[in-house]
Amino acid sequence: MKRILTGVATAAALVAGAAQAQAQDYPDQAITLVVPYGPGGASDLAGRALAETARDYIGQPITVLNKPGAGGMTGAGFVSDADPDGYTLLLARVGMALTPAVNPQSTVDWDAYTFLGELEASPMILAVKADAPYDNAEDLVAAIKENEGTMTYAASGATAIDGFTVQALLSDSGMDPLTAATLVPYKGGGELATALLGGHVDFLAISAGSLMPHIKSGDMKPLMVFAPKRMDDLPDVPTADELGYEQAGQITGWSALYGPKGLPEDVTAKWDEVLAKVAEDETWLTLAERRGSISTVGERDMAEYAKQQYDLFHALAKKFGYIQ
């Protein structure tokens, strides 16, 4: 029995090896990809899409493991503490740079990883209910000013990315980001979207994946996009940058692939090679489009980008008064 198994493994390795120019040791067993949030969300879908696409190129199955909790830090800590052998990797999100930047209690630093590469940009959308009397971001901002703090918005938490989108917008408009509108915390994209649909809050700015269905069905109105460029699906909705919101213009969602600090050279080289193939993979691109993301595999140096994101959020957190 064992001999058969070894035979199968050797055969598989030969096939995989033939596809690559040179045979390497890594990987010789299944790889665990930790998604630091619950199943079904945007990050989970991104992780599963990567696992499904990359397995063909890396020649080993990739198992997705959800480890939610503490704003993503539980899963992130699990990976940064794991052996740097390349068999435990992390689907990193913007939270991995944001949380250590704004929360002194955070347990994992922004650079406690080996950065394997950027995966996708996932835009955030500022939206109101379809019957709300605001047709653009300026209208909404004016109304927030007029109502002196009584307007409400839904977010995952004060120091979560979807709280920072709104707070950056308020700050850019010359208001106090913490008191100009009332934050109502909800958990997860589904709950957030429901809160706006049911009219329980006045506006929100969360990831596009959770909002697109309601925008397409006409139940919500998109006012502004938090992304480097306009979304293909919403060509008429301006970006924060276009509207002159300086801080809000720099905020967007993203996913990346991280590993524990000190990954060996052959692992990083292997993943460079694999990610280059994923970047052009038809399935990967289709799945990204369907969850409302733009594939950015290999477009930027991830270590540099993560540093830049950390600095941005650290400065904002100081300015907003979360840390001294």
């Binding site: 004060a158 913490l178 008191t179 009332t182 008064g321 979360y322």
Partner: peptide, 9 residues
């Protein structure tokens, strides 16, 4: 008790 939570919440 985080300081940023508004007084009425």
């Amino acid at each position: 008790r985080p300081a940023f939570i508004p007084g009425f919440a």
